[in-house]
């Protein structure tokens, strides 16, 4: 499975789009097979028993075992991630605020209903808020350099949501992709998925990346060209060509996760 770690000076979207003449033909058949494998696997887990409440699965569940505490999932990390995700939306349409923290908070507040994280932000004392502001601003510098100016003619979507049901609604697969570049209505595969993380890239990042590729394939019935994760902590990019082995591994990981969490 080819992967690449690029220098931070490279515009990541430019690098991910690659040479258009080298792109494979659009694959619209793999999704059906993947869905069948998932449904069969889910039946083997449930033995035909129905749940009273759906099992909700997201990328965090695939990457984190039930007994593992991941420090990046702590409230502070989630808050930072949510704010940086707003900056991705800003930069994608060419808006570059002077004060990234203030802009991210404003954008996030207008879009997000009151909840655990909004309360956490409101409850921060002055020191903690300043620390978060400095942290977000540092990530913003890295992000801005990597995204550069997105050409206005490119098809770029931000915060792309997925809500898929499996097993007659017993399982709900949830996902939100920070950036999706390209459209599925071409004869060749041209869609690139980008997940922006504020944590360093590790093994778990790859599992999340595979999950993004799988849910996108199931949702659109078209296999994307590449899936990538960009870390604003280290300025590095990991990308994978999306092919059947990658999607097959994502299916195995998802079934493993559902098996672990079915009884919960």
């Amino acid at each position: 499975m080819p992967s690449a770690v690029l220098a931070p000076s490279v515009c990541i979207l430019e690098a991910l789009r690659g040479d258009p003449s080298q792109r494979p033909r659009r694959d619209t058949t793999t999704a059906t097979g993947l869905r069948a494998v998932l449904e069969d696997g889910l039946f083997a887990i449930s033995h035909g028993n129905r749940r009273t409440t759906p099992l909700v699965v997201g990328p965090d569940h695939v990457t984190t075992g039930v007994d593992v505490i991941d420090i990046t999932h702590a409230t502070y990390g989630r808050l930072r991630g949510a704010l940086v995700a707003q900056l991705v939306r800003h930069y994608a349409i060419g808006y570059h605020p002077e004060d990234p923290f203030d802009a991210a908070v404003r954008a996030w507040t207008i879009e997000t209903p009151a909840g655990e994280l909004t309360t956490a932000l409101a409850d921060l004392d002055d020191n903690a808020r300043s620390r978060l502001a400095t942290d977000v601003s540092a990530h913003a510098v890295c992000l801005r350099r990597a995204l550069a100016e997105t050409p206005v003619g490119w098809t770029v979507r931000t915060a792309v949501r997925t809500r898929l049901r499996l097993g007659g609604g017993d399982v709900v697969l949830r996902d939100t992709l920070d950036l999706v570049v390209g459209t599925a209505d071409r004869a060749t595969t041209s869609v690139v998925l980008v997940d922006v993380t504020t944590a360093p890239i590790g093994e778990r990042t790859d599992a999340a990346l595979r999950y993004h590729a799988l849910t996108h394939t199931l949702r659109t019935s078209v296999t994307p060209l590449r899936a990538a994760t960009f870390s604003t902590a280290t300025g590095t990019l990991t990308s994978h060509e999306v092919d059947y082995p990658l999607l097959g591994r994502a299916v195995d990981e998802l079934l493993d996760t559902m098996g672990r969490r079915w009884a919960t």
Partner: peptide
């Protein structure tokens, strides 16, 4: 709206338009 809020509205509307066009 503040420019930062407008930018999110802009991004959301552009995403919608792109999806409808697709």
């Amino acid at each position: 709206r503040h420019p930062a809020e407008l930018a999110v509205v802009h991004a959301a509307a552009a995403d919608w338009a792109t999806t409808i066009a697709e």
